[in-house]
Design a binder for these strands. Sequence first.
DNA 1: CTCTATAACTTGCAAATTAAAAGTAATTCA
DNA 2: TGAATTACTTTTAATTTGCAAGTTATAGAG
Lengths: 129, 129
Amino acid sequence: MTYVLEVLGDKWTFLIIRDMIFKGCCQYKQFIDSDEGVATNILADRLKKLAKHEIITQCKDPQNGRQKLYHLTEKGLDLIPSILQLIKWSGHHDVNTVLSDQIMHYLDHRFEEAVEIVRSEYLTNCHVG
Amino acid sequence: MTYVLEVLGDKWTFLIIRDMIFKGCCQYKQFIDSDEGVATNILADRLKKLAKHEIITQCKDPQNGRQKLYHLTEKGLDLIPSILQLIKWSGHHDVNTVLSDQIMHYLDHRFEEAVEIVRSEYLTNCHVG
DNA sequence: CTCTATAACTTGCAAATTAAAAGTAATTCA
DNA sequence: TGAATTACTTTTAATTTGCAAGTTATAGAG
């Protein structure tokens, strides 16, 4: 539990992982352009930290040598249930979090399926082994 | 999701809620004495914030007028699934988090039951309506 | 082959936040 | 009445953050 906090107990770290899972973000630029507005030094620091904890991997884009690609590891993907539970909580208790009836139904009654959908969607879009 | 971070995106807030759920902490002194070592000003600030968001309630102890009692609301109790998912993740990926086979089995295969057990145990120990 | 653009950082500094220590207020118990 | 306990608040120093401005490496255009 202390480890979870070391890894996730920070706003920006959390948002980075969320943007990877749900927006398919995998480049430095994409995180910077994301609506949250993270500072460049903070982003670099958090990406380094996440890589150190093996939650993400960093590699050169074979198509474009000046870009790097960030991808979630299995350990990172295993955070999907936790994040979905938090989204579910928001759906129930935060007026500003408006989720469709279908999504709420999945979260409330078919949680494991929801996890699988999010996971396989990520793997499809980010086509990594 | 932004709301979750506003509420939980902070190490100490998270630890306070965890200590309430799993250690039955309900007094200022208990949080201070807890192994984590939170500073008094930070604790006061976070308890105020949690009360403002209606995740906990604050009331005078009828038995001892100089004490206050902090209790989780329904909204706060609804965080149990999120926290259990994080514990489950720790059990799988952090070498320092050692959970018994029985607990891991519950988290992996009977998650809803685990949530109910933790919830009703809290309600029993903290005997609030 | 040079020149400009782009991506991914790093550095420096002011501002905000946190931690540690000491102080305060209300209540209880001797 | 006076010491102890609980729940804070205040002060100050240290740490962390956010912003702006560099820096490095690669790509593509001419």
